[in-house]
Amino acid sequence: MRIAVASGKGGTGKTTVAVNLAVTVARSGRQVHLCDCDVEEPNAAIYLDPQLGPAVPVSTPIPVVDNDLCNHCGQCAAICEFNAIACLPRQTLVFPDLCHSCSGCWLVCPEQAITQADRVLGEVSVGSAGSIGFTQGVLRIGETVVPPLIHTVKATVRGAPWVILDAPPGTTCPAVEALRGADFALLVTEPTPFGLHDLDLAVKLARGLDIPCGIVENRAIPGRDIVDRYCAEMDLPVLARIPFTRDLAAVGSEGGLLVDADADVAAAFTQLLDELVGLEARA
């Protein structure tokens, strides 16, 4: 069971849900691996304090043009969807930060004037937190090409039947890459118009990727039912609620686990796990 924990809005509690769910799964005796796919701001490690192996650089291939071999035919620039190559009358230039590593330019070059070099995007570390397998990716500062790093983070999982993917916020390429291949998307929201607006984007993303989804309402306030009304309208299950209390906020801000601090929240996560086990059985 591969579960992506996602949201449209940032700061809704994706990491909180991901780490507390991972702990709940592990305590039920199941083997679980958590991937922190939020490579721009990976912070699941703050909660789980994993032992990590060495940080391994992750790179992506980019073209290098030999201007002595280049006859400026322009086929490389023509095939590039991202304008990463400029074919000019006397020189062919590469703009590495625009390149998406599609291989088109070096495959199409009739003069074999294009070779490949590696461009480092960030690094990946693999380890464990108790019985929980753990991987995190860290994007290089200033880098804009994110999906290959997230892809590598996900590819480190070996054999764990339960995988939890802590996705980045938003609905752009990094979020798509984190969700891709997931069996289920847990979408975390909060009962605010902002949270709900961006939840709707996340629901559309998950449905666009054909991934079934359910909702975790964080910072739930009794009597505030905008999330329920939205979920009823969209035929989405609310699988867990985390109440909005000062005590829980304090636990989270100190890097603590909600399931250790509050029996009701622990029960909510156990019930969430039961729901997910049930979904897996029915799939």
């Binding site: 620039a77 991202f82 304008n83 990463a84 074919c87 000019l88 703009f95 625009l98």
Partner: peptide, 9 residues
């Protein structure tokens, strides 16, 4: 992306 690169060509 790269509108300026394309226009320069």
């Amino acid at each position: 992306q790269g509108a300026g690169v394309q226009a320069a060509q």
